[in-house]
Design a protein around this nucleic acid. Sequence first.
DNA 1: TTCTTCCATGCAATCGATTGCATTCTTCCG
DNA 2: CGGAAGAATGCAATCGATTGCATGGAAGAA
Lengths: 360, 360
Amino acid sequence: MQSIAWKKNNLNFTAKIIRMSNQPETTIHDIAKALNISASTVSRALNDNPLISQATRNKIKKAAAEMGYRPNVVAANFRTKRTNTIGVIVPLINRHFFSSVISGIEEVAYEQGFAVSISQSNDNFEKESKIAHSLFANRVDGVILSIAMGTSSYEHLKLFSERQIPLVFFDRVVDEINAYKIVADDFRGGYLATRHLIEQGRKRIAMIGGPQNLRIYQNRQAGYITALQEAGLQPDDAFILHNSLTRKDGTQAISKLMNAAIRPDAVFCANDTTALSSIIYLRENNIKVPEEVAIVGFSNEPFAEVVTPSISTIKQPGFEMGKKAAELLIRQINQKETPDYFETITMPTELIVRESSVSK
Amino acid sequence: MQSIAWKKNNLNFTAKIIRMSNQPETTIHDIAKALNISASTVSRALNDNPLISQATRNKIKKAAAEMGYRPNVVAANFRTKRTNTIGVIVPLINRHFFSSVISGIEEVAYEQGFAVSISQSNDNFEKESKIAHSLFANRVDGVILSIAMGTSSYEHLKLFSERQIPLVFFDRVVDEINAYKIVADDFRGGYLATRHLIEQGRKRIAMIGGPQNLRIYQNRQAGYITALQEAGLQPDDAFILHNSLTRKDGTQAISKLMNAAIRPDAVFCANDTTALSSIIYLRENNIKVPEEVAIVGFSNEPFAEVVTPSISTIKQPGFEMGKKAAELLIRQINQKETPDYFETITMPTELIVRESSVSK
DNA sequence: TTCTTCCATGCAATCGATTGCATTCTTCCG
DNA sequence: CGGAAGAATGCAATCGATTGCATGGAAGAA
């Protein structure tokens, strides 16, 4: 796009190279040879190093384009020990919450010139560990992750701290590891959901919670208990179940609750999948939602809005969490030293009231 | 940091190395030096090259473990020009169909020792192109992709063919490029959906279709038309709409159909999202589904089963498609030459009948 | 015992780009 | 006009692993 004219030291060069399909790759040395200059100059020019004169830069870029030069990023990564790639590990990519987080990460990462490599652990420790090793082996510059439900050993993550590769956790965080953490306000989510049910006049509010080795589920439950206590209701162990929050687990849990001597009149489910299972179970058993049993879920999965009755739930700011996580990670990547203090950032949750919890 | 004792060629070696956190990485040369052997032997041993005696191999592996050796995969990739990574580009990772395909790909890839790097184009050409360049720059061994709706130029994919990097398309394939293609039987899907509606006694069957630059949507529509003709019904242009199949587009389309002089008594939607929009619109306008208007969607998204009424739809074998794609890709990667004939593999689709299309 | 054969290991080049330092060429100032 | 400062470019080492070929040694054959 620039046309420059010179005299002495004429740079009016045009490489007459035919781009051959799939033959030996053009390297900076080929360009150097063609232009009769050194490879270092070519390298610097292509990286817009100001040491190289504008004229030479242009000449080199032009030749590079004509010769079909494609930088060998692997070689550069090898030399510089940087890959400009950030790895993301999530339990499942098709959960709306996680894919929102990923979109947030990508937004920031691309803007800052980082590529994003996404992997899913399928909530399986083994696979998570494999992925961690693979990301490590490929020398990603940093990792953002939400651990699998089954993960309780963190050996595989030590890889990263050993080599000072920054790590940012989100959602399902690990207390034992010192790193930035981005979480939704699960406590408040649990609290809001439960208080809402109380405000609807419910008295026997059960909870179907998640694995208690995960902080997020502890917190959701703590919010639930606090709300109950605040309202002078006694938390009842028989009303609190724990499982892996799958469709099947949910069905089992709700069935157990509904077949007990004392039935709940409301259930706070620690995720929307469980809320959905519950609603389907209740419908099949002719128990009216919300009249007989009110339901609140968690996460605001897209289906929550469209099932009948639509599901009241807690919305988490996934996209923002992803952006925040990427920002923090990239900041760490760029300033080489490890911060001496890692915050845990809590992002607000919000109650969305729909049909499943409100009797008109 | 190291105190080592040997006699000549002693195999009773124990490296007493303190694994230092984040210090200079251990390389095969360090191991070689510690054991007083050559780096080539170390390299071969670690790769289980049978040229190296079992005894030496064991000794080296033990030392490697003790010294906290982590192979520098980037260096190896650079040298071997192979990354054992396959790139996957999908429009959106949180579509059930795509994430099923991804799971299928992963299943095969991991088994064969390949890592999988997933990216989403957000149905955006620019981003797809960026991703393609990034995957190419990082020298993935092969790519599996389903192109973005907006993509109509294929320059960015030439990168791969130029350098003989195998490509496998699935679902949204590109005719212009010679490569293996895995598609669901969209024609038959459209045909089955429409025939089903006809069997339900519907006469005025509309269709909300997708962008006609994509073969899959052409085929779904062709199936629809064939079924109509077979039944002696005349396809009617006023009954065939096209859009991008988003929630919003769907609402617009169904509203247009329902506000026309002649209303359809059934709608075949080219995806489930549109079917959902339609159902919601119809519900809000007090039009009974399926009594007044029957609906069939496409893809069998998870929500299709749980909304009320549940959505009849066409199921595509995503997981199997992913497996197949990965198999074909990896086969190409392993046998260096390009096959001279690329098949297009069509996988069967299946009609799932639910409430939205059957009046009892 | 001597020569051949094969097994195990070592040597050294190589992949392509980057970068600290040295060198050359300009330009400007006294 | 000489010299110094600064601008532009080149030299060569380097990153860590792989690999074709050479070599040393042991075992087997004669």
